[in-house]
Amino acid sequence: MPLPARGETDINAQLDAGLIQVDGTVDYALSDPERQAIHELYALYDQLLGEPNPRLDMEALSACNDALHNAYDQVQKGGRLKSMRGSLLRAVRECPLCGAAPATTLDHHLPRAQYKSLAINPRNLVPSCQPCNRAKGTVVPSAGQGMVHAYFQALPTATFLRATSSYIDGALAISFYIDDTVVPSPLHERLTFQLTRLNLDERLVDSINIMLFTLKPSLEMFRGLANERAQIQEYLRGAARSYNKDFAWNHWRSAVVLSLSECDAFLDDPWTYLDKPLILTEALEEDVG
């Protein structure tokens, strides 16, 4: 399901906050035709579901493009549009792109540098974590690439995020993919691009380890039982159903535990992995330019 679109306020009030300083100094005085054109632009953006289109480059806004681009600075912490920022970030409990980290930044779905007039349109501002924001960069959605729009993209209510598990000598490796039997083109190509662009196979390693070690106390109940393997398999399947319910369909947690429920090597001996100390990779500081 798409995210609920939050952060919308009265468009004129939002424009005033972005373009007029607290002391009344006007950074840019919008004309009435420009205000009307911005209203039309935002409506067109919704109509196009956030997809790039030459119609979004309105000649009527050519004079105020730079001012709107620069007004995004007021969306940052402490800026005059901080309330909009807070509303957008509070709408999610985790980054909608990776599902593994808090959303602490706002990403321009259509890049700010190329779509200046949309710089403070809340529908173009997607909550994200810093690593996802950095990895996504300024890519523009097109055929076979780009991020799906968190506010507009309707996704199948079926399991399409899958994972494969490699388990050798207690070493576990998880790789994600999009099931092309469930998701048709071109959505499959875009989701696959997003998965690769965000490098989730590597970035989710620590999150996967933490999740599985969190499950260990429950799995311990089955250790040594005659039907240990069957009990662990059923528990993992139940966990997948629970994650689908609690974290929304096609969350990476569901894909991981479902994959392990089908991994014979893991089911035969999960303890070689689970009895090791939990060791996390060194976290790298991320910053968004």
Results as ranks from 00 to 15, higher is better:
Leu106Lys: 00
Asp107Val: 03
Asp107Gly: 03
Asp107Trp: 01
Asp107Gln: 05
Asp107Phe: 03
His108Pro: 11
His108Val: 02
His108Ser: 03
His109Val: 07
His109Leu: 10
His109Met: 06
Leu110Cys: 10
Pro111Phe: 03
Pro111Tyr: 01
Pro111Asp: 03
Arg112Ile: 05
Arg112Cys: 02
Ala113Leu: 11
Ala113Glu: 10
Gln114Lys: 10
Gln114Leu: 11
Gln114Tyr: 06
Tyr115Thr: 08
Tyr115His: 13
Tyr115Val: 12
Lys116Pro: 09
Lys116Leu: 10
Ser117Glu: 05
Ser117Phe: 00
Leu118Ser: 04
Leu118Val: 06
Leu118His: 03
Leu118Phe: 04
Ala119Thr: 07
Ala119Gln: 01
Ala119Tyr: 05
Ile120Ser: 08
Ile120His: 04
Asn121Trp: 02
Asn121Ser: 06
Pro122Asn: 02
Pro122Val: 05
Pro122Met: 04
Arg123Tyr: 15
Arg123Leu: 15
Arg123Lys: 14
Arg123Thr: 13
Arg123Met: 14
Asn124Ser: 08
Asn124Gln: 08
Asn124Phe: 08
Leu125Asp: 00
Leu125Thr: 06
Leu125Glu: 00
Leu125Ala: 03
Val126Tyr: 07
Val126His: 11
Pro127Met: 08
Pro127Leu: 09
Pro127Ala: 07
Pro127His: 09
Pro127Ser: 09
Pro127Tyr: 06
Pro127Phe: 11
Ser128Ile: 01
Ser128Phe: 02
Cys129Gly: 01
Cys129Asp: 02
Gln130Phe: 00
Pro131Cys: 07
Pro131Trp: 04
Pro131Lys: 01
Asn133Ser: 13
Asn133Gly: 11
Arg134Val: 11
Arg134Pro: 00
Ala135Phe: 07
Ala135Cys: 12
Thr138Asn: 12
Thr138Trp: 09
Thr138Asp: 12
Val139Tyr: 00
Val140Glu: 11
Pro141Val: 07
Pro141Asn: 04
Pro141Trp: 04
Ser142Arg: 11
Ser142Gly: 13
Ser142Gln: 08
Ala143Gln: 07
Ala143Lys: 03
Ala143Thr: 04
Gly144Ile: 06
Gly144Tyr: 03
Gly144Trp: 05
Gln145Tyr: 10
Gln145Thr: 11
Gly146Arg: 02
Gly146Ala: 07
Met147Asp: 07
Met147Leu: 12
Met147Gly: 05
Val148Ala: 13
His149Pro: 12
His149Asp: 14
His149Val: 11
His149Ser: 12
His149Thr: 10
Ala150His: 02
Ala150Arg: 04
Phe152Pro: 11
Phe152Arg: 12
Phe152Tyr: 14
Ala154Ile: 12
Ala154Thr: 12
Ala154His: 09
Leu155Asn: 02
Leu155Cys: 04
Leu155Lys: 11
Pro156Leu: 13
Pro156Phe: 13
Pro156Asn: 10
Thr157Glu: 15
Thr157Leu: 15
Thr157Phe: 15
Ala158Trp: 03
Ala158Phe: 04
Ala158Cys: 08
Ala158Ile: 06
Thr159Ile: 15
Phe160Tyr: 15
Phe160Ser: 06
Phe160Ile: 12
Phe160Pro: 13
Phe160Val: 09
Leu161Glu: 01
Leu161Arg: 02
Leu161Asp: 03
Arg162Ala: 13
Arg162His: 14
Arg162Val: 14
Arg162Pro: 13
Arg162Met: 15
Arg162Lys: 15
